[in-house]
Amino acid sequence: MTALIRAELQKLFTTRIWWAMLIVMLLLVGLNLFFIIAFAGDTPQNGAAPGLPGLEDPSWLQMALSVGSSGTIFTMILGIIMMTSEYRYQTITGTFLTTPRRGRVIAAKLGAGVLVGLLFAVVALVVVGVVAVTAVLIAGGEVSFTESRVPQIAIGVVASLALYAMFGIGLGALIRNQIAALIGGIVWAYVIESIFAAIPALQGVGKWLPGGGTQALMSIDIDTGLGESQLLPAWGGALLLVGYAVLFAVVANLTTTKRDIT
């Protein structure tokens, strides 16, 4: 199985999509970070919602680090591409000729997806960490990595990016058409999830969705003004994301993956 996972990583790193995706992720994370730095300590005029904490405030660093979790969309997209490009370029034929037990191919891809997600998370955290810490120090604040919930947030970012890559692979195995899988994944993440996250009455359901799992992993309790959302415990969020990926992969293995390759 390690050989198959290595082969999957080789497949990804011998094409160009991975670094394009990494750069786009860093750009988005950087943009997010820019606004959080620029508007740090700003209080809105109407006072209805609390503004961003100031740079000296320890909770600002937590918030800045959690920006890394916005990379989930990119690891998900990468996961979808890792799976569906096999069908798009028909390389799946050669893959199944080399490894005729198809379930093992999907399992190896899930494993490779986790590793790629970890890599992306580490890069995102390092970039965010360096910029955020520099901003805090320039503002004259103090930085403590052990205090507050910095370690938990870092773990949350790492876990959510890794698990979203897995989620993407599971989704791609189920929906073999690359465009359809990408549209499905993105619409889900940006439209459906935000509906469930925003409307209090739906939050009871929302916590069982992948986005709810990520939120649980981050479990950053910055008051949204809508009241405390009912989230799963962090480990529950992790299990939920793994569960989705495995469920998709198993269903795919019983349906789409079994199909004739013609």
């Binding site: 082969a7 080789q10 011998t14 999509i17 490009s85 370029y89 050669g94």
Partner: peptide, 17 residues
């Protein structure tokens, strides 16, 4: 059935792995 962005050598190396 090849990925157009992959080199010939890499294609075969992946199979080897």
């Amino acid at each position: 059935s090849f990925h157009p962005g992959r080199t010939a050598r890499n294609h075969l190396r992946i199979m080897c792995t």
